[in-house]
């Protein structure tokens, strides 16, 4: 028996919208720790890891570890039927081939029940080793989304370089080239507007912008994004989910042949 209740139901919508561009079907794992997911995109270039900790839910009951294969577009279709202020309760049963979503309006005058079919998914789990990163950039998530969108209209790949000057995003395409430098800036009215660049060693890596742009679908989840870089490692683009956990995207770099 599994029962999760989230008063801030819109959060679940945002989580599904954040990852469904990258992954079609995924296996959600439920344990005493929380509700989690790990999935690769179909070309095995990127990986998404989600964690919603049990303490973050208003009610969390998970009698035993359970994995549920779900189609994210179908999940989005169901969740779209919830009002933005609705309380969402997610229920599952051992051995059942369906799960259910219950949406309650804040005034309790409308209660909806949706049942969704589960899928059989052969998911391969990867071990993500702990790593010490050469550079960690924190910046407003909207700013990062803007940069990826702008560069994506010019080139296919972005070179992210971190030096003591700041972080530079560069691209090159048929029509020309672009460089955007963001300097550390902590002199801001609100902490979420800050950009910080923590650098142990200078680093420069190349990534496909198509994936970066897909990661920015998580922007509504968090005001800030954290980009962790090390040569020889996939970049980590992390959106923290307040009080609950995170969505982390890992993207393998491109190298010169």
């Amino acid at each position: 028996m599994l029962e999760l209740r989230l008063v801030q139901g819109s959060l679940l919508k945002k989580v599904v919208d954040a990852i469904r561009d990258l992954v079609n079907d995924a296996s959600f794992d439920c344990s005493a720790t929380g509700f989690s997911l790990q999935a690769m995109d179909s070309s095995h270039v990127a990986l998404v890891a989600l964690l919603l900790r049990s303490e973050g839910f208003d009610h969390y009951r998970c009698d035993r570890n359970i994995s549920m294969g779900m189609n994210l577009n179908n999940m989005a279709k169901m969740l779209r039927c919830a009002g933005n202020d609705d309380i969402i309760t997610f229920k599952g049963d051992d051995g059942s081939d369906t799960v259910s979503f219950m949406f309650e309006s804040p005034t309790q005058d409308k209660i909806s029940d949706f049942e969704m079919k589960l899928m059989d998914i052969d998911s391969e789990r990867l071990g993500i080793p702990e790593a010490k990163y050469q550079a960690i950039v924190r910046m407003p998530s909207t700013e990062f989304a803007r940069i990826c969108k702008d560069l994506g209209s010019i080139g296919d790949t972005v070179v992210i370089s971190v030096t003591k000057e700041g972080v530079k995003f560069s691209t090159r395409g048929d029509i020309g080239s672009a460089n955007i430098v963001c300097r550390q800036n902590t002199d801001v009215d609100k902490p979420e507007q800050a950009t910080t660049v923590e650098m142990n060693d200078p680093v420069s890596l190349t990534f496909a912008l198509r994936y970066m742009n897909s990661f920015t679908k998580a922007t509504p989840l968090s005001n800030q994004v954290t980009i962790s870089l090390s040569s020889e490692l996939p970049v980590v683009v992390e959106y923290k989910i307040a009080e609950m956990g995170y969505v982390r995207f890992y993207l393998a770099p491109k190298i010169e042949e």
Partner: peptide, 14 residues
């Protein structure tokens, strides 16, 4: 020409 690496080259299957 740039070569796109796969995520599985970095993270082992468990």
């Amino acid at each position: 020409k740039r070569l796109q690496l796969n995520i599985t080259e970095f993270f082992p299957s468990t």
